[in-house]
């Protein structure tokens, strides 16, 4: 554990708190992509199956349970809550997320480091996480004025990925046997997807106006 990894995890946690706060406090999920949230739920389930048979640290296990719980809470609110579900902009959330799931599964079957059930599912979760933000990014472009909490949620998610890259650089330069090419390549692609959003987020923040993605 290093400071970049810890900061990354805490930023990830904070992003989920911000999103849940927006949904619970404003009783609205306007501008939030249910497809992205469902993809994250799939990512966490397939990656954290190892909760059942492998233990790394109490920190890891607690975080895994928290991430799973928050992902399912968000999906529950967006799909089933009697008030919140009516605020979901279905017609703006049209990305075909099933293609992302299928593509990630095919890639995980082709490129993995060990051809076992759990390893392939874990690899699938890495590939799917890399692209899971796409429905949300497309939806932001279609939504007019993006509210602060939604913008901050996506910004924090992008920060979390950036901090993970710093964590990998740190680990690579300090640990003797540290090599995880699948995670690195997927993570760099995932972070690159935020570049456009970051540009407009910082530009609007600098000019002190509401976030709009052209």
């Amino acid at each position: 554990m290093n400071v970049f990894r810890l900061a990354g995890d805490l930023t990830h946690l904070l992003s989920l708190v911000v999103l849940l706060l927006k949904i619970v406090a404003t009783k609205s999920c306007r501008g939030v992509s249910a497809k992205t949230q469902e993809l994250y739920a799939i990512v966490f389930v397939t990656r954290y199956l190892d909760l059942l048979f492998s233990f790394v640290s109490l920190y890891n296990s607690v975080m895994k349970v928290v991430f799973l719980g928050s992902a399912f809470s968000i999906v529950y609110f967006m799909r089933y809550h009697k008030v919140v579900r009516h605020t979901y902009d279905r017609e703006l959330d049209t990305f075909r997320s099933s293609f992302l799931v299928a593509g990630s599964m095919v890639l995980a079957l082709l490129i993995n480091s060990k051809y076992t059930f759990f390893e392939v599912l874990w690899t699938f979760s890495i590939y799917l996480e890399a692209v899971a933000i796409l429905p949300q990014l497309v939806m932001l472009q279609r939504t007019g004025n993006i509210d602060n909490l939604t913008g901050n949620y996506v910004f924090l998610l992008g920060m979390y990925r950036g901090l993970y890259i710093l964590n990998w650089i740190y680990r690579y330069s300090t640990e003797r046997r540290y090599w995880q090419m699948i995670v690195w390549v997927s993570g760099i692609i995932q972070t690159a997807l935020y570049a456009d959003f970051f540009y407009y987020y910082l530009k609007c923040w600098n000019e002190n106006r509401t976030l709009v993605i052209p």
Binding site: R5, D50, V56, N60, K64, S113, E119, W122, W179, I182
Partner: peptide
């Protein structure tokens, strides 16, 4: 390298 990766990150 085809060594299975340690899954020690989240």
């Amino acid at each position: 390298k085809d060594v299975p990766q340690d899954h020690d990150e989240l």
